[in-house]
């Protein structure tokens, strides 16, 4: 009797683990900075979507390029219309895997996420060092990486070349909740 009860508990426990294997961040934050001697440009997107499959260690990120907020309207206009062409390429995506991810470890772990970042129609393999915090199943991923404008086929007119840095710093922070699909 006791053995059957134990088996039932194990099955139930397995079923619960299976049902909560994915977590979602609906309001992830991604910001970027361009530092030049002419001007500094900062933009922020607070509605970035991301899903992690905790068992597989896979991660997907999806963001709308026209949802970046700038300090000045002209910066936003140039970004969307001239550089990123957000009407043609509305989204940037990332699909990758958290290497050696241990979903059950509580506290902080630093891991490498390897995957493909697609922006402005160009896909590029990237690796990002990421801080992963697990507080009783509430995961927070954060980090910073650099990306190069020329890698994504973004044309900056010579007149404005001095205003845009060749290397852009990207910061991100995602707070995940259980995904009930």
């Amino acid at each position: 009797m006791n053995k059957s009860f134990l088996a039932l508990l194990l099955i139930l426990g397995f079923a619960i683990t299976q049902s909560s294997e994915k977590v979602i961040a609906r309001q992830g934050q991604v910001s970027f900075f361009s530092y030049t001697s002419v001007e500094n440009i900062k933009a922020e997107n607070n509605q970035v979507s991301s899903i992690i499959d905790l068992q597989e260690g896979t991660i997907a990120v999806d963001m709308l390029m026209n949802a970046f907020i700038f300090e000045k309207a002209l910066m936003r206009e140039h970004f969307n219309e001239s550089y990123i062409e957000s009407d043609i390429y509305p989204k940037a995506t990332f699909e990758g895997k958290i290497l050696n991810f241990e979903a059950n470890i509580q506290g902080t772990q630093i891991k490498i996420i390897k995957g493909v970042f697609k922006m402005h129609g160009v896909s590029k393999d990237i690796e990002i060092k990421t801080k992963i915090e697990n507080n009783n199943g509430n995961y927070i991923l954060s980090g910073v990486f650099e990306t190069f404008v020329e890698d994504y086929n973004i044309n900056i007119p010579p007149l404005l070349a001095g205003n845009i840095a060749k290397s852009i710093e990207v910061n991100f922070k995602f707070e995940y909740l259980p995904y009930e699909n």
């Binding site: 899903i51 963001m63 709308l64 949802a67």
Partner: peptide, 11 residues
């Protein structure tokens, strides 16, 4: 209306 990801985004 900015578009749609998993959800619809309004700013």
């Amino acid at each position: 209306l900015k578009g749609t990801l998993n959800d619809v985004i309004l700013l």
